[in-house]
Simulated assay, not measured.
Amino acid sequence: MKTIKLLLTFALTATLFTSCYTEVNHIDDEPIISLNELLGSYELWYVDINATKGYGETPFLQKAFTMSFRNGNAYANNNIVGLGDTGNGFGINVGTYDAYDMILDVYHVIDGFETFDIYQVDNNTIELYNPKNDTSYFLDGYQRNNFDYDFVFYDNIHYFLQEYNAWEKVYTSNYGAINEFDNENYLQFLAGGNDSEFKSSQDPNGKNTNNLYWDYTGLYGVGNITGNNKLKTLTLDYDYFDNEYFELSVINDGKIELYHPDSGTAYEFVGRGYIQFMKTTNTKGKTVTAEKMRKHRKDKIENPRENTRIL
């Protein structure tokens, strides 16, 4: 009799726990508000690229820092330049969307059609699961007045440097020792590829950036300085001579200062040829897709989400 009671108690407990677990999943996967209401409950959805699960990529989400879904139109902040100002903080219009049941269909002006299953993770986080590539992106919701545009800007200086066709030196301080970098008049930081390649040119100032001769190529890296999130380090790893190390300060969206501690010299560079990362225009005036994609700061992981749709 005692054994039977114990078995009944175990069965009842297991049933209760199973019931609770099922109910929680039901709330997360199917919120009591409609998908359109859920998407519209926040003005900005920050794409937490490092939370992505799966080995695939959805290009327009891989480019975006934020997404917004407003009255059937999709908006994205793909650039660090102008972040918080472009489109009143929403960014640029990148397409349209339909939201029904828990499915989001996006018609992107460059990347075409993508469909997602939407899961509500918590009060301000949603999961966009792409059944085509078995990859989930996680978006955190904010209102424009409480979104930290500055943090996103300074956390992504690496991409900021890539958003101009070239950086032209416009100022060299009259203090500091003479050094090799005095001869460099242009820098270029390349998007795509290994995402860490730069070029430098000694061509004279005022030249069309499309006609520059690039004297050197190498790798670059941007690092943080403890206690000052607005001051960065920039290391230029030249192929043919020693590395150059700088302290990088952003003066505004189109001007930076590079301080060279070894010589005590300060330089200012101005961005030439702004690149909008959704599309750009080549020399023949045709629209082409830009290559910039945000990179994960850790290894990709397998996606546990199961595909329940037949595409």
Rank of each mutant, 00 (worst) to 15 (best):
Y137N: 03
V152I: 14
N185P: 01
L212P: 01
N165H: 15
M67I: 08
D134S: 10
K5C: 02
V47L: 09
D122R: 02
Y46D: 07
L219Y: 06
Y267W: 06
Y267M: 07
Y129S: 07
S19A: 15
A74I: 08
N208S: 09
L190C: 03
V121F: 04
Y97R: 01
S263A: 09
D134Q: 07
Y154D: 15
Y129Q: 10
S173I: 01
L61Q: 04
I92R: 11
G87E: 12
K207H: 07
D28F: 05
G223S: 15
G89Q: 02
D28E: 12
D29G: 05
S196I: 12
T235I: 09
Y159F: 14
Y175W: 14
Y245F: 15
I256A: 02
I178G: 01
R305Y: 15
T3R: 11
F189D: 02
I251W: 04
D237L: 02
L248W: 05
W167E: 00
T18R: 04
Y238I: 04
G176N: 09
A266E: 11
A290K: 07
D195C: 00
G72N: 10
S263Y: 09
N252P: 04
Y245I: 08
Y238S: 01
S34R: 06
L161N: 00
D122K: 10
Y245H: 10
E257V: 11
D140A: 09
Y97S: 01
A177W: 04
H158C: 10
Y259G: 00
